[in-house]
């Protein structure tokens, strides 16, 4: 049994001749929060969609507890909670019914269903809107509902795609606290974002994608230190993204831009 929750090995996705993700190698340990950073089109969302089994890798693999994310999606999703960038819900389901439906589909029994839904509704401040149709929620509310859906079954890997988009500062603070608690409890978090300050604040390790490839990976301190003493993560990010060639091989050790 591997000591990692998520192992991505040589993951590649091609759309015709264009490569969206090329030869990506990342591993996430239990309790670790790994941030995925990169400019638009770097391949963050494609990577996440391959990890959640929505897209087929062209080569390589992503594995959760040893299960292939694409071929063994049902087994993988027992351990994974996924929050998409722009969650959409069914037209005629109320918020409470969405949560009920998700809990039923995850096979939770009636007692644990009620307990978990109650706890998440309170924690994410969803109570007021539960009787409205979810399709009419604001973007922030939809995110909170989708996050509740992702956490209902107690996943061991939480995949968050731009989780703070549309959230107000209060909800963002709740989310940060929740992520920290989950990580403390041993849940691995795979966190994709554009926002450098967020990544620096939340993540223990950061992987920077550029031009479909892994350009650098390490702790925020390692990334900052690799550039110059006193440099910020923003400086490090721009140095990696602006200067490194897309064709550079991704073989350097963690913490050093490759």
């Amino acid at each position: 049994m591997s000591r990692f929750v998520l192992e991505i090995c040589g993951l590649t996705k091609a759309y015709g001749d264009a490569l969206a993700v090329e030869n990506l190698d990342i591993a996430v340990a239990p309790g670790e929060i790994l941030g995925l950073l990169g400019p638009n089109g770097a391949g963050k969302t494609t990577t996440i969609r391959m990890v959640t089994g929505l897209l087929a890798p062209s080569s390589g693999s992503a594995r959760v507890f040893g299960h292939d994310c694409y071929r063994e999606r049902p087994q993988v999703m027992r351990h994974v909670g996924y929050l998409p960038d722009e969650p959409t819900f069914h037209d005629y389901l109320r918020g409470s019914e969405v949560l009920q439906f998700v809990a039923e589909m995850h096979g939770l029994d009636r007692t644990s269903r009620a307990a978990r839904i109650g706890a998440l509704v309170e924690r994410l401040d969803l109570g007021e809107a539960l009787d409205d149709f979810a399709v009419h929620y604001s973007k922030g509310m939809r995110k909170r509902l989708a996050l509740a859906c992702a956490l209902l079954h107690g996943p061991q890997l939480l995949i968050l795609d731009e989780p703070t988009n549309g959230l107000d500062p209060f909800a963002m603070r709740t989310l940060y606290a929740l992520i920290a608690e989950l990580a403390y409890d041993g849940v691995a978090v795979f966190y994709s974002t554009h926002l450098l300050d967020q990544a620096e604040r939340v993540c223990q390790r950061i992987a920077i994608l550029k031009g479909a490839r892994l350009a650098a990976m390490g702790t925020p301190e390692q990334l900052r230190g690799s550039l110059a003493p006193g440099a910020s993560l923003e400086d490090a990010f721009f140095a990696v993204v602006a200067e490194r060639s897309a064709s550079a091989p991704a073989e350097s050790p963690p913490g050093v831009p490759v």
Binding site: R78, M105, G107
Partner: peptide, 19 residues
């Protein structure tokens, strides 16, 4: 008919065909 909510089905630990 699943519309934009098709992603939700993919988050469940069940084969899509079964659903």
């Amino acid at each position: 008919g699943e519309g934009g909510a098709l992603w939700l089905l993919y988050t469940f630990p069940r084969p899509i065909g079964a659903m």
